[in-house]
């Protein structure tokens, strides 16, 4: 009984909590080796096999999902297409400069397809835009906190 009490008391020490948490998490993670792990192949937003588009010399590889700017929509398999009236438009969109580069090089997609328009932008800005709002809020909060502490406490100001 006494040793249980001592163990309980040791858990009230903040310094030990991260270590204890790490230990518990480690034990739970070991269970991951014991259960069957497999990928359900019916996923949202699937992409072609790795390297397939690159081997096919597609200039927009690996982010080519079809579509022509302002004319034809790209293919996007979203969860709720009924709530997304402009789905696929952003994927198909290429800026004028991007179209120019597209015709000159084969490796365009790996470098610059992240410009506005493009597959990831469709997901980040349109279908799952709220995630990005949150994500940038998290970053902003971290900066607010860090800069507040730095400005008021940890910085040595000479003026």
């Amino acid at each position: 009984m006494k040793s249980i009490g001592r163990f309980w008391n040791s858990l009230a020490n903040p310094d030990r909590i991260p270590r204890f948490y790490a230990l518990v998490l480690g034990i739970v993670l070991i269970a991951g080796f014991l259960i069957p792990i497999g990928l359900n192949d019916h996923q949202l937003y699937p992409r072609p096999e790795p390297q397939l588009q690159i081997n096919a010399q597609d200039p927009l590889a690996p982010y080519d999902r079809g579509g022509v700017t302002f004319e034809q929509r790209g293919i996007v398999k979203a969860q709720y297409p009924q709530y997304l009236p402009a789905i696929g438009e952003i994927t198909a969109y290429l800026s004028p400069i991007a179209m120019g580069v597209d015709h000159t090089t084969l490796y365009y997609g790996t470098s610059i397809y992240s410009s506005p328009g493009g597959l990831i932008d469709e997901i980040l800005y349109y279908t799952r835009g709220f995630d990005t709002v949150l994500e940038s809020s998290i970053l902003m909060m971290a900066f607010v906190i860090a800069s507040f502490i730095a400005l008021n406490f940890t910085m040595r100001r000479e003026d």
């Binding site: 790795p50 390297q51 982010y63």
Partner: peptide, 10 residues
């Protein structure tokens, strides 16, 4: 790179 996550990589 194997998964072609280029933007994530950058």
């Amino acid at each position: 790179l194997t998964y072609n996550h280029t933007i994530a990589l950058l």
